[in-house]
């Protein structure tokens, strides 16, 4: 029974996982990123447009990812250079992405998905599904085992430490946000490549769900992506709809769990110390 749900779980949690990794980079560098939703949406849009115009899914992936990066750059310029309110900027970007994709909405023509790889025992999935665990481990290694990761985290934890080493907080925050756009854009590409279409507002709150996973996973790549698998499993249960549980309850389970975790009933949730704080 549970095994039947694995394919759906993997398909549902992979875009979340990419976005959550993105969210972790940004938030670890001290920038609240509510723009995940918009970055993911524009990534999906870019994938479909890129694939439609060039005929190649790889170009689509490239376009989608760079659209995600462009949104991230906008977020970085606003929040880091102009010290704009991060929460509001994020929401502005989400509205902007929704508007752009609606305005330029691509023709409803089916596009090819990214290549699927057949693996013994596991089955046939998009190669992105296999990429996610690799990137998850790589992100963990980067953030917690390398000096660069340490600096990126220092941008979000202690500005003084960076200043003492005469390193620029601005640079590391830009890096964090851009990585966020890169990963989230890829997540959006995956979403569109599995659905084969672009529809208006197709992310449907997945960006916010990924943000919930970031918090649920205590701002760590391994637990953040694991949270995405849990959330994806909840969605798979909801879609399978074989028990008499209202689907809406399963749907809101991730949100309720995140609130419980945030309040500190389960374990300790500790955001980066200067998350959301402006310079000065």
């Amino acid at each position: 029974m549970i095994f039947e749900l694995i394919p759906t779980t993997l398909r549902m949690s992979t875009p979340l996982g990419f976005a959550a990794l993105g969210g972790i980079y940004s938030e670890r560098s001290g920038i609240i990123n509510l723009a995940l939703e918009g970055m993911m949406l524009i990534g999906a849009f870019g994938y479909v447009v890129g694939t439609q115009t060039s005929g190649s899914t790889w170009i689509g992936l490239l376009v989608g990812t760079s659209f995600g990066l462009a949104m991230a750059l906008l977020h970085a310029i606003a929040t880091v250079t102009f010290q704009a309110e991060q929460v509001v900027t994020g929401i502005g970007i989400n509205i902007l992405a929704l508007g752009i994709t609606e305005y330029l909405s691509p023709p409803p023509k089916q596009v090819d998905g990214l290549p699927h790889w057949e693996l013994p025992l596991i089955g046939s999935y998009s190669f992105m599904v296999y990429l996610l665990p690799i990137l998850m481990v790589a992100s963990h290694t980067f953030l917690f085992k390398t000096p660069w990761g340490l600096r990126l985290r220092a941008a979000g934890e202690s500005t003084e430490a960076l200043a003492a080493l005469s390193l620029s907080r601005t640079k590391w925050q830009y890096l964090g946000i851009l990585l966020s756009g890169l990963f989230t854009g890829i997540g959006g590409c995956f979403l569109a490549s599995e659905v084969h279409y672009f529809t208006k507002g197709m992310t449907a709150g997945r960006g916010y769900l990924a943000l919930a996973a970031v918090i649920f996973g205590n701002w760590r790549p391994l637990s953040g992506v694991s949270a995405c698998f849990l959330f994806g499993f909840a969605t798979a249960l909801e879609l399978a709809n074989r028990w008499n549980i209202p689907g809406q309850l399963l749907h809101s389970l991730p949100y309720i769990l995140t609130m419980v975790v945030l309040v500190g009933f389960v374990g300790t949730s500790r955001p980066p110390a200067s998350l959301g704080k402006m310079k000065s």
């Binding site: 906008l74 606003a78 102009f82 010290q83 704009a84 309110e85 509001v88 900027t89 929401i91 502005g92 970007i93 989400n94 509205i95 902007l96 992405a97 929704l98 508007g99 752009i100 994709t101 609606e102 305005y103 330029l104 909405s105 402006m278």
Partner: peptide, 19 residues
Amino acid sequence: GLFFAGQGMLIIWLVCIEG
């Protein structure tokens, strides 16, 4: 969508100016 996009831009400009 043009107006939504404009609205998003408007929000970002305003917070930047405030910043």
